[in-house]
C-alpha cells in the first residue's frame, strides 16, 4: 500500500482537533515557558486554536515536507505575526519556539491512540510530525531573529545620523564634532553632511573636532584628509581640533602627514583662528568682575 508519510497526521489533526487543542493549551499553561505574565490565557487559547485550524488545513491540503509551499502560507503568516508580537512583548526565542514544540506531546499521543500496534507506521508518522513541528518551531526563531536584526539595523542608521551633526558656530563658521570611530561608511556620511551644509550656509571655514574619536590610525587620518580635501574643493577651509596628547603622539609615530591642515588642540583655539580668518571678533561687553 502506497501512502504519503504524514497522511495519518493530517487525519489525526482533522479528527481530534478539539481534543488536541485542550491538551495542548493545558500543556502550554503548565510549562513555565508560556510566560503567563506576558500573555493572557484567552489570547493564548485563541492563538492556539487559530494555529491548529490553519495547521489542519495546510496538512490536509498538501505534503508535510515543505513548509515553504503555498499551502503553508497561512500557517507561516500566523507564526510570523505571533513571533513578532511575542518578541515585542519580551519573549525569548526559545519561549516562542516552545509554543510550537509543546504541540508534540498531545499530537504524538493521539497518533499512538489512532495507529495502535502498527509500530512501523507509528514511527513513520511520528517522525513526519516531529519534522514538521521542528521546522515550524525553527521558523518562529528565525522570524524572531529577523525582528531583532531589523531593530539593530535601524538603530545603526539612527546612530549614524545622530553622530554626525554639523553645527553653525558663527556666521560662516561650521563645526563638525565627530564622536566614535571613523570608518569609510561614516566618512561618506560626514562628508556629504558637511558639504551640504557648506552649500546651505555659504560657510568658508569648517572646524572638524575629533575630541570624541577614540583612536586615530592611518585609515582614520586618511578619511579626515579626504574630508578636508572635499571641503576645500567647495571653497571652504578646514581646521582640525580636539587632538588629545595621546593622539598627537600616535599621529607622529604612525608618520601621518597632517602638514596640509591647520590643527589645534581645542575647539576654542580653532574657533579663534576661524574668527580671525573671517575677520570677525568676539569680545567682552564688561570687564570680568
Amino acid at each position: 500500500m502506497v501512502r504519503n508519510a504524514g497522511s495519518r497526521v493530517a487525519q489525526v489533526l482533522e479528527k481530534h482537533e478539539r481534543d488536541l487543542l485542550t491538551a495542548w493549551v493545558d500543556n502550554q499553561l503548565k510549562t513555565s515557558a508560556t510566560r503567563r505574565d506576558l500573555i493572557p490565557e484567552a489570547d493564548l487559547r485563541e492563538q492556539s486554536r487559530e494555529f491548529l485550524r490553519r495547521l489542519r488545513d495546510a496538512a490536509a491540503g498538501g505534503s508535510l515536507d515543505d513548509i515553504e509551499a503555498t499551502s503553508w502560507q497561512p500557517v507561516r503568516d500566523l507564526l510570523r505575526e505571533l513571533s513578532t508580537e511575542r518578541a515585542r512583548h519580551g519573549f525569548t526565542p526559545s519561549e516562542t519556539a516552545t509554543f510550537v514544540f509543546s504541540l508534540k506531546e498531545p499530537l504524538f499521543s493521539r497518533l499512538r491512540q489512532e495507529i495502535g500496534m502498527d509500530a512501523a507506521t507509528l514511527a513513520e508518522e511520528t517522525w513526519a510530525a516531529s519534522l514538521l513541528l521542528d521546522r515550524l518551531g525553527l521558523f518562529t526563531t528565525e522570524i524572531h531573529q529577523q525582528g531583532r536584526e531589523d531593530v539593530i539595523n535601524r538603530q545603526n542608521e539612527e546612530m549614524l545620523e545622530l553622530s554626525t551633526p554639523v553645527v553653525e558656530l558663527w556666521e560662516g563658521i561650521l563645526a563638525l564634532p565627530l564622536i566614535g570611530t571613523l570608518d569609510s561608511a561614516r566618512t561618506q556620511v560626514v562628508m556629504e553632511n558637511l558639504l551640504q551644509r557648506i552649500v546651505e550656509t555659504g560657510a568658508s571655514i569648517a572646524i572638524i573636532d575629533i575630541t570624541g574619536v577614540p583612536t586615530v590610525d592611518t585609515l582614520v587620518a586618511q578619511h579626515l584628509l579626504k574630508t578636508v580635501a572635499a571641503a576645500r574643493l567647495m571653497g571652504a577651509d578646514c581646521l582640525i581640533s580636539g587632538i588629545r596628547p595621546q593622539i598627537a603622539q600616535t599621529i607622529v609615530h604612525l608618520g601621518v602627514d597632517l602638514q596640509s591642515v591647520t590643527t589645534k588642540a581645542t575647539l576654542a583655539d580653532a574657533f579663534a583662528v576661524a574668527l580671525q580668518r573671517t575677520g570677525q571678533s568676539v569680545g567682552r561687553v564688561r570687564p570680568p568682575a
Binding site: Q188, M191, E192, L195, Q196, I198, V199, G202, S204, K226, A229, A230, A231, R232, L233, M234, G235, A236
Partner: peptide, 27 residues
C-alpha cells in the same frame, strides 16, 4: 574654481584629484 557641487567634490576626492594647485570658492 567656483561653485563645485558636494557630489562632484566627493567624486574628485575619491578619484584622488584634490586639485591642490587650484584655488576654490563657493560663489
Amino acid at each position: 574654481v567656483v561653485g563645485m557641487r558636494p557630489a562632484v567634490a566627493i567624486t574628485l576626492v575619491e578619484l584622488g584629484m584634490s586639485l591642490s594647485g587650484v584655488r576654490t570658492a563657493l560663489t
